[in-house]
Amino acid sequence: MKQKHTAKVLSQQEIALAIYDMWIETPLAADARPGQFVGIYPKDKSTLLPRPISICETDAARGALRIVYRIAGAGTREFSGYREGDAISLLGNLGNGFPLEQGCGKRAFLMGGGIGVPPILELAKRLEARKDIIAGYRDANLFLGEDLAKYGTLHIATEDGSAGTKGNVMDAVRENGLEADIIYACGPMPMLRAIKAYAGERDIPAYLSLEEHMACGVGACLGCVVKTKEIDHHSHVHNARICTDGPVFEAKEVEI
């Protein structure tokens, strides 16, 4: 059941330049799935809409969930000022999440690019597969690497070559001669397009987490759609709602 409620910040730290890592105490942690997200409401009344942020990790024992985010504008800047004990207003859990069954026992790529890396962590924790985790960054301002390395073989790519493979996540796949039966990915659109093309050539499934500007976050406003190959079951046109039918889609289903 979705709900909006006020939760409590347990901790926050800056883990890389302008990248923040926050743990939140919330009942939403109990049934949060990897690839789902929460809507976080800034308190400042000039910023009314919820900010979609992926669930990075959950800790059921503590009843807590973790988010890792970049300061992108007014809302995320406000969040970065929160301290232990502060109240935080959340809408969750939103979206479908990554399908875990499909990858069970297979060779899987878990690919994250930039601020698309965070949801890969909880996925890596829960997915029972032979995992190559490939994380792409702009430069050596890396984050979450140590956490990810606990759950699979980690490969790093940086655009400027300052760490790991020089280039993007696909370059890291080629350089390391990696192979997979299934792909999970979250990141910027050019990266997702390249993954879709790669998966298409090899005829393997790829589950991509997409991003779009949102208003309601719950499927009511039709603000956040992506073009679909087939007529969508809900909209009856070639459009699916990223906030509810996604954010994770099989690459073949969407026109990106």
Binding site: L222, C224, V237, N239
Partner: peptide, 23 residues
């Protein structure tokens, strides 16, 4: 009706803009 291309929504001071296009 398929509606408009995205982005369809934008936050503005004290509210929002939408151009859903009546999907």
């Amino acid at each position: 009706w398929p509606g408009n291309p995205t982005p369809r929504v934008a936050e503005v001071y004290g509210g929002m803009l939408n151009a859903i296009g009546l999907q």
